[in-house]
Design a protein around this nucleic acid. Structure first.
Lengths: 366, 366
DNA sequence: CTGAAAGCGCTAACAC
DNA sequence: GTGTTAGCGCTTTCAG
């Protein structure tokens, strides 16, 4: 395949028009409105363009003129690369990519590491709108996005008044799970959760930190758990909650270790994500704790690997989440009534939840 | 968090300058060159901007002026969503995202389904360069990319003269694997490969189609296999090669089924990807063929799931591949000597390869 | 079917 | 430090 010589871009629509002895409009029409000029002339224009090495209208100039960038920006709280590690995040990305593909617009991943306060990338992004996926409510990148005069859709969190949002009903979803555990008889529980704020805290979480969490999803789940278990007679202030900044299977395992080391009497480990739960399962195996006979473990998300592991979890349609967000953003909208799409969730009972050991079994074995 | 009122964008740099009674340069400097004006004035500018709801310089207009889009385009041969399904592709994406993040530029996923010949999206993308990942040599999107006056780096395939490229040495990598099988004693082999061209052909592959494959990687691997096994006394024209258009575990399984149904005497199944190999393993299980006692299976890529399955395969550093491509694209370059980065591969012997059954064992069991 | 005029919103020399 | 001058390359009414 021949490679066009890459000359110092000199040919422009204007120069092409000059060469042809027609107006710029005509050349523009040759590309954008074929029906506005004779086929013959159009052929000549395109032909000359090829000869001069004119690559067609410059996309940036066109965007400036038409006020359409032809792309959607995506803001994540994490390193971009993180998004590719968590299957739930990949699902969201996939759904969003699907929606963009259907609409023929690009998906512009904004480089926004959590560490750097560098929000310039948000301002530099030539996009027609943003999808924001699961960032803390005090994220400076989010503020930068909201300051831009383009529509925005937020997935999962945070909840910002006046901004479109798509996500599950976290409270009711996790309440269903909690009820399941209550019914099984669990009263000695422990919780493993994802990061609650931008500052790192790998360890136990005070009641205050739980309530002040900047990640709405985690805050809601913890609050719902607290409510359900309090109603079942559990004093929430005695329930150990361990937080991990990083969201990996290994961190789930180490969190489980930390919790079980200090609270061996726990009969159920509730994890706010499948990834953490998979780590908890691994740690249980390491300790020769049988699941679910000795320990119940639950997750959240319903990723494929969790299903394979038989994890009891709450499934949410992640692909749909991404796709809905994209469609919402791309759909015409009056920009006055913010829209909220609440996605269904489903409690999936697996083989990792069962009634707790009785005290007798605890001391003497089953 | 307060939501700024989204008025009909009226404030521009010019109107802000007018309001302040300063020149546009000064306002521009307030944003782009803080050292070029007094802190006091700058404060006033920013303050007034906030009051007027001026969101800062328009990124598109700035891009037009500076001739920098601040983004890298990514072209894939597949639906965007496919890229999120194959762990090897996700790895490449992750590496590329990492490189972009380091450089502070966005990653613009170009919506280019394989079906649609619609190359407009390529022309519409406001990017400073393209990374092309594994497309056929006759892909119209690729042609569109190459026609744009921006640098391009191709990952894996195709090989285009004068264009930067990064990828493994496929021929030598698969030759190492083939030698391993030859040494084990395999002479009755079958091959499962990925799509060889843009037209769908789920089934056996003629010698001609092998040689004419538009996917350079597959063509090279098949050619290298042919050479090695011919040298070992195998008549390649008798070797069954089954192609699958879709790249999924299920397709790998169905390909294996098709091959084993017609060629039960085969002792080794060489797959050109781990995904296909995982499918082959599944099919072997279904037939009660023990691996590797009854059947040897090999893959290519070295994805995590393959490692877990103990697959004998060729590992390639996918994350590095993506990262290198990004760095290559972003690095200054004289644009005259095309650069090629060849990544190392490693033969990983797992538990899915062993000497073939002897004829006796074949008939009478081990 | 074609052309002239009028910017889209911004930045970068280069004077002042 | 600040303003003036010139576009970046394109699309789009609106006449002819």
């Amino acid at each position: 395949m021949g490679r066009p010589i890459r000359t110092r871009r000199q040919a422009t629509l204007a120069s092409l028009a000059a060469e042809l002895g027609v107006s710029r409009t005509t050349v523009s029409n040759a590309y954008n409105r074929p029906d506005q000029l004779s086929p013959e002339l159009r052929r000549r224009v395109l032909e000359t363009a090829r000869r001069l090495g004119y690559p067609g209208p410059d996309p940036v100039a066109r965007s400036l003129r038409t006020r359409k960038a032809g792309a959607v920006g995506l803001l994540l709280t994490e390193n971009l690369s993180y998004a590719f590690r968590d299957p739930a995040a990949v699902g969201v990305l996939e759904g969003l990519a699907l929606a963009c593909e259907d609409a023929g617009v690009g998906l512009h991943l904004v480089p926004a590491s959590p560490g750097r306060e560098e929000v310039a990338a948000v301002h530099r992004a030539g996009v027609d709108g943003f999808v924001v996926y699961s960032v803390p409510d005090d994220d400076p990148h989010l503020a930068a996005v909201l300051s831009r005069p383009v529509p925005t859709v937020i997935i999962d969190q945070p909840r910002i008044e006046g901004v479109d949002r798509v996500g599950p009903d976290d409270a009711s979803a996790i309440t269903g799970l909690a009820n399941h555990l209550v019914e099984l008889g669990h009263r000695q529980i422990g919780v493993l959760c994802m990061r609650l704020a931008r500052d790192r805290n790998d360890g136990f979480v005070s009641r205050e930190r739980q309530c002040d969490a900047h990640f709405h999803v985690q805050r809601t789940r913890l609050a719902a758990l607290a409510e359900t278990f309090q109603a079942a007679g559990v004093d929430w202030s005695t329930v150990p909650v361990v937080e991990r900044f990083e969201h990996t299977v290994d961190d789930g395992a180490s969190a489980a270790r930390q919790l079980l080391d200090t609270h061996p009497q726990v009969t159920a480990l509730i994890c706010t994500s499948d990834i953490l739960a998979l780590g908890a399962l691994a740690e249980a195996g390491r300790r020769d704790l049988r699941v679910p006979a000795d320990l119940t473990v639950t997750g959240f998300d319903g990723i494929a690997e969790a299903t394979r592991a038989g994890l009891t979890t709450v499934h949410q349609p992640v692909l749909e989440k991404g796709r809905s967000a994209g469609q919402l953003l791309l759909a015409a909208h009056d920009h006055v009534n913010p829209r909220v799409i609440t996605l269904p969730t489903e409690l999936r009972l697996g083989t990792t939840s069962a009634p707790p050991r009785t005290a007798e079994e605890f001391w003497f074995g089953p």
